[in-house]
């Protein structure tokens, strides 16, 4: 296509925008609503993910060891756990032994080296040693439950040589329920987001299609004449395609701007006011908008272009029959 023809068609596309200004505004608004909802869902899901990852111990099962166990009995439990780790498809590493002293150090770190913790530990550490098993993938709940049951059934040999229960079920600490709850919230949001995207995208397509159809109807004689003159389908289609693309790009830009303000002045404030603790620092980790800018920009543009191109293509189909 020659540059002059290209620019002529671009001009015609812009004219089309103003020909049906009310419908154009309606198309833009629906598309913007669709994009903002999708963008907000994306940010919320990402925030959940982000906070989820920040909680290190969530994908860990911790096996607390009785203070009465001898070194040999601790080693027996360790070996049994190693066996469980080897046979489980969702555990890559061997169990890690964390001594009572190490737990004490961690606690001190957690309370900013509070002196009273040090005193307690020195006067007889009440904390117990443990084994930590880290899961690669926590979504296989059945396997996690199997591992938990196997840990619960570990036996050790006592001083008399008899087999006895090695790990009490109340000493197996995990976050399966919390993980499950968070995952189900995340999945629900994810599915709701996908459905919303699909429904709003279909509505957007219909609204843009109607906008372009009005333009096509107003120009039906021109289109007929163009066809009979020898204009190619691409030539006939292009002004309408440009119209759809302009609606898409403009909606994407508008949605991006609104999403920025929503994020900066609404979402951040809501999260802060809802989660601020006594010290004033927020418990929920919220990313920077700059981190979302690229995926949101690309996503909005993709939705806009898809809606614009597809709807203009469908609107013109009837008039493009040779």
């Amino acid at each position: 296509m020659k540059p002059s023809t290209f620019f002529y068609n671009i001009g015609q596309g812009f004219k089309g925008i103003f020909r049906n200004s009310v419908m154009t505004v309606a198309s833009v608004l629906v598309l913007v609503a669709c994009m903002i909802l999708v963008g907000t869902f994306y940010i919320v899901i990402d925030t959940i993910d982000r906070n989820f990852k920040a909680i290190n111990d969530l994908n860990v099962i911790e096996v607390k060891l009785s203070k009465d166990y001898s070194d040999d009995q601790v080693a027996q439990i360790g070996k049994a756990l190693e066996e469980i780790c080897r046979s489980s498809p969702i555990i890559d590493d061997m169990p890690v032994f964390v001594s009572a002293d190490e737990h004490g150090e961690r606690m001190k770190e957690m309370f900013d080296d509070a002196g009273w913790i040090d005193e307690i530990i020195k006067s007889g550490n009440p904390l117990r040693a443990s084994y930590r098993l880290e899961f690669r993938n926590f979504s296989d709940f059945d396997e996690v439950t199997r591992v938990r049951n196997r840990i619960d059934s570990i036996t050790i040999t006592d001083e008399s040589g008899a087999q006895t229960d090695g790990v009490d079920s109340k000493d197996i600490k995990d976050y399966i329920e919390l993980y499950g709850t968070v995952m189900s919230v995340k999945n629900t949001l994810y599915i709701a987001g996908i459905w919303l995207l699909a429904i709003l995208l279909i509505i957007s397509l219909f609204v843009i299609m109607n906008t372009i159809k009005l333009g096509v109807f107003a120009r039906r004689n021109e289109i007929t004449f163009m066809r009979l003159c020898g204009a190619t389908k691409a030539m006939i289609r292009m002004p309408f395609m440009v119209e759809g693309i302009i609606i898409g790009i403009f909606s994407a830009a508008l949605a991006f701007g609104i999403e920025y303000y929503l994020f900066k002045y609404l979402l951040t404030d809501i999260v802060r006011s809802a989660t601020s603790n006594a010290t004033g620092s927020a418990d929920i980790i919220l990313g920077e908008f700059s981190e979302y800018a690229l995926p949101l920009g690309i996503g909005f543009l993709a939705i806009g272009l898809f809606a614009g191109i597809v709807s203009s293509g469908i609107s013109l189909k009837k008039y493009l029959k040779a």
């Binding site: 296509m1 020659k2 023809t5 002529y8 004689n221 021109e222 004449f225 163009m226 003159c229 020898g230 204009a231 030539m235 006939i236």
Partner: peptide, 19 residues
């Protein structure tokens, strides 16, 4: 003929649409 185009534009349109 297209009412919103001048005589010149009407004739030119036939050329424009074929590039």
């Amino acid at each position: 003929l297209f009412d919103k185009m001048t005589v010149y534009e009407n004739v030119a349109f036939a050329m424009r649409v074929v590039g």
